[in-house]
């Protein structure tokens, strides 16, 4: 009788173990974003303009270089930081000056931002300055969009596509 009770209690304890696993492995449900929301992703991978323009070396400067290293033109590597702003419905949602990557600051400026917004109509304005010598913004794009529920709208930037891409 005692043995039977022991086996029964073992069954109950094993049962409690698998109920815990079975439940917590799928529940409670987590809401990442509501059904009536949408997402705008702002992303950038872009190298700013060179901070200093390339210049021709004089004959004296060339002579000072080792014969196998002689070039006529040198281009300083450092890139301009990139200033990026995003306004949604007139409200400034993102503003940052992105430092170029790399030890010599000669790499891309990068960012990735995710904004959760209500589904529906929105006015977007994205603007960017990739040259410290230029005042204001040298790239800008404005568009009214209608986002369906759970839609992901991507704002990317590519110079080969003439600037901002709204997708």
């Amino acid at each position: 009788m005692i043995q039977l009770l022991r086996y029964t209690s073992q069954l109950l304890l094993y049962g409690a173990f698998i109920v815990t696993i079975g439940y917590a492995s799928t529940a409670p449900t987590h809401t990442h974003i509501g059904d009536n929301k949408a997402v705008i992703k702002l992303t950038l991978k872009h190298a700013g303009q060179r901070l200093e323009a390339c210049r021709q070396l004089s004959e004296e400067e060339q002579a000072r270089l080792a014969p196998n290293m002689r070039v006529k033109e040198v281009c300083p590597r450092e890139r301009s930081p990139v200033k990026l702003e995003l306004l949604i419905d007139g409200e400034l949602m993102y503003s940052a000056t992105l430092t170029p990557g790399g030890l010599s600051r000669d790499g891309n400026s990068n960012t990735y931002q995710r904004f959760v917004v209500p589904a529906g109509k929105h006015a977007l304005l994205a603007r960017l300055n990739d040259d410290v010598h230029v005042k204001g913004f040298n790239y800008e794009k404005e568009q009214d969009i209608t986002l369906s529920p759970l839609q992901i709208f991507v704002i990317d930037f590519r110079t080969d596509s003439d600037g901002f891409i709204f997708n």
């Binding site: 799928t26 449900t29 987590h30 809401t31 990442h32």
Partner: peptide
């Protein structure tokens, strides 16, 4: 499309 509710 974004994920909304999930059973994690």
């Amino acid at each position: 499309l974004s994920v909304s509710t999930i059973d994690i």
